Amino acid sequence: MAKDYQDPPPVPLIDGVEIRKWSFYRALIAEFMATLLFLYVTVLTVIGYKAETHGMGKKNVDSCGGVGILGIAWAFGGMIFVLVYCTAGISGGHINPAVTFGLFLGRKVSLVRAVMYMVAQCLGAISGVGLVKAFQKAHFQKHGGGANGVSDGYTIGTGLVAEIVGTFVLVYTVFSATDPKRNARDSHVPVLAPLPIGFAVFMVHLATIPITGTGINPARSLGSAVILNDQKAWNNHWIFWVGPFLGAAIAAFYHQFILRAGAVKALGSFRSNSHV
């Protein structure tokens, strides 16, 4: 039987045509705004939780009175679900340099688009956290601006591994949710794609908030570090870039070359061409 799907061809490494299209700049605006909104809501949630449990000067704080770690995880996962749903048809709904990097390695986006997306995401994150500071300056400074860092009792190596594995889960989910083979076989999957991506973010946050506060998104970590501009926020900041990028690269390799047998397909294509 003929295949019921067709893999799209790899995107050119450098695509000079797309930068002359309005759709490209519309996608950049979408990534900027989505990351701004993502950081605004999530960092506000983190700071609000810390203010409620640590900053009110109460001796006996009702542990059920705030959102808690579970609520923070829901804030991150829920916002990703909402924003991916809103922007998927415009920019692909990356909202994360690590996701963009993984899709670039999988030849889903060009180098120009990948770089510009990352710039837009980082600027959006800085702007989003800047809005939080503008509205909640006292709480923002007092409670660490939602900045990521390796928690006491954990080593740098543990934090790095947590970021690698957490980002692997996220980017692997992105590849799986947007797989053209699955989309063709299960027509309802494209509609549901934002749900598993948001849920992956939620689950990873549950596991890694106690370790690093959960980065898995370099723009998210950069936004808080830049606006807080505190030495503690910059300590070991490299973990929140190296970890997510390594995790994304491993996920891209695993999905494209192990699960989808990209290397075997490429070799088969090469052999067939050599006999023409």
Rank of each mutant, 00 (worst) to 15 (best):
A27T: 02
D186N: 07
A177M: 09
Y85H: 13
A233R: 02
P190T: 03
K108Y: 04
F245D: 06
L170G: 09
Y5K: 09
P190W: 00
L192K: 10
R113V: 07
A134N: 04
R107A: 14
A266S: 08
S221F: 05
K58I: 09
G48V: 05
A162W: 00
W74I: 13
S176D: 10
A147P: 04
P97H: 03
V204A: 09
R113G: 11
L160H: 01
A114N: 02
A120N: 05
K265N: 11
A114L: 05
A184H: 00
A266V: 04
K265V: 09
V109H: 06
G243V: 07
L13H: 01
R185M: 12
V264H: 10
F76V: 14
G268M: 10
S110I: 06
L195I: 14
L37M: 15
K59A: 15
H205I: 04
G48M: 02
V11C: 14
V84P: 13
S110V: 08
A162N: 03
G247L: 10
T35M: 14
L111N: 03
G198F: 01
K59N: 12
M118T: 04
I197E: 08
W238D: 11
G71Y: 00
P244Q: 07
V67L: 12
P12N: 08
T53A: 08
T214H: 04
I19E: 09
G68T: 03
H255L: 13
L206T: 02
K58Q: 10
K58P: 03
C86F: 04
F199C: 15
G146E: 00
L259F: 06
D179R: 07
K59W: 03
V46G: 10
P9W: 00
G146Q: 00
L206C: 14
T35Q: 10
A73Y: 00
F253A: 14
G145V: 01
I72C: 14
I239C: 06
K3S: 15
L160W: 00
Y85S: 15
A219Y: 00
S176I: 08
V99T: 13
L111M: 11
F253E: 10
P12A: 12
A138P: 01
A125Y: 01
H255P: 08
K265T: 09
M1I: 12
T45A: 15
G262C: 10
N217G: 07
H205K: 02
T214G: 12
A138R: 02
S269T: 07
V84S: 15
A147E: 02
I29L: 15
S187Y: 00
N217Y: 00
L13D: 06
I211Y: 06
Y254G: 14
L44W: 06
T167I: 09
K21V: 12
T45W: 03
F24L: 13
A193T: 07
G66M: 04
W74F: 11
F240N: 10
G93Y: 01
G65V: 05
Q136K: 05
L123H: 07
A27R: 02
F104E: 04
I95G: 10
D15R: 05
V264N: 13
I72A: 13
L103V: 13
L83Q: 07
V129K: 02
V129F: 03
L105G: 15
P12T: 06
A184C: 06
F270I: 11
F24W: 01
M33W: 01
Q121D: 12
K50S: 09
G223S: 05
S176H: 06
G16N: 02
N217S: 08
V276D: 14
I80F: 11
R20Q: 09
N235S: 09
